[in-house]
Amino acid sequence: MNPSPDILCIGSVLWDIIGRTEMALATRRDMGGLITRLPGGVAMNIAMTLARFGMAPAVLTAIGGDPEGDELLQAVAQLGVDTRFAHRIAERPTDRYMAIEDATGLVAAIADAHTLEAAGADILQALHDGRLATAQQPWAGQIALDGNLTAELLAEIAGSPIFSAADLRIAPASPGKAERLLPVMAHPRATLYVNRQEAELLCETAFDGSRAAAEGLVAKGAARALVTDGGTDASDAARGAETFTRPAHVVRPRRITGAGDTFMAAHIYAESRGAERADALKQAQAAAAAYVAFADDGENGD
């Protein structure tokens, strides 16, 4: 019998197709580099990082009924992530994310999450039918929720009794989808993980750093907010509590896609093991720095 998951990761599980070059990429030019295909998506990135830390995460997501979906589920399971509750849609293709990165960071990306969006609330069936929880006995553990879900589903989640007892950890999929989180960020047990640009979109104002952004989100209605600001710093603000800020580690970036998800997963893991807020922030910063400095060819950055 499979054990109960430690945490549920709800959102996108797809194929990440990432092209990277060590040079600065000029517009409309070809460049030599490395192209990889790996399991990805916000929910998946968080889940597989937690699995590496020794936790038992499960994903609630939508997977196409195509051979790419079969292959993806097999790859995800091999990474230690529970896929029992994934929703398959026979007539749809498996979602994909495509990004181009160069020496300066992310150049451009396109996220095709149409199968996840089409599934809607069907991905939450295990929280209704007793496999994980019911409306009468809602899931009371941690849930990592990503902004690839539709605005309508996120709004439904914000007021649903299914999520009333959960420790919600929320991340946008991208700045372009950050505003989808407005309804659910007000959940009384939610922690929001965003970068400074996303915080500015949610608050409709500019901030001079991660600390002001985190405190701005709390003033906007979030119970707690963690804000990263690239290679500068990160802050943790909570309603009625002290704000903590820590400088980012100085590293030479070798990859960017997934760094925010790694930060979030490391922070969740640290707190699940009893770390205080300041120490959990420190551990998350260290994990994110190690992630962006790691090279696909096996060499570490400076």
Rank of each mutant, 00 (worst) to 15 (best):
M1E: 14
P5M: 10
L8H: 06
W15K: 08
I17V: 12
I18A: 09
R20M: 15
E22D: 14
L25M: 13
R29W: 07
R29G: 04
R29C: 09
D30V: 05
G32V: 08
L34M: 00
M44Q: 12
M44W: 05
A47K: 09
G54I: 04
A56N: 14
A58P: 07
T61Y: 01
A62W: 08
G65K: 07
G65C: 05
E68T: 10
D70S: 09
L73D: 01
Q74C: 01
A75W: 05
A77P: 00
Q78I: 03
D82N: 14
T83V: 15
H87P: 01
A90F: 12
A108S: 11
D112C: 07
T115G: 06
L116F: 04
E117A: 13
E117R: 15
A118S: 14
A126F: 00
H128R: 15
H128G: 08
D129G: 07
D129V: 11
Q137S: 12
Q137Y: 04
A140M: 04
E152C: 08
E156M: 03
I157M: 15
A158S: 10
G159M: 06
I162K: 05
S164V: 07
I170R: 01
S174Y: 00
G176K: 08
L182E: 11
P183V: 04
A190I: 02
A190M: 03
T191N: 03
N195W: 08
E198T: 09
E198W: 08
A206Q: 10
F207W: 11
S210F: 01
G216V: 06
G216L: 02
L217R: 01
V218P: 02
A222N: 02
A223Q: 09
A225E: 05
G231D: 13
D233S: 14
A234I: 07
S235T: 03
R239A: 12
A241M: 10
E242L: 14
E242K: 13
F244A: 09
F244Q: 07
T245H: 04
P247E: 02
P247D: 03
P247M: 03
H249E: 14
I256R: 14
T257G: 01
A259M: 15
T262I: 15
F263W: 08
M264G: 07
E271L: 14
S272I: 07
S272E: 14
R273K: 06
R273C: 00
R273H: 11
R277P: 00
A278T: 04
A278K: 08
D279Q: 15
A280N: 02
A280R: 00
A284I: 09
A293G: 11
A295N: 13
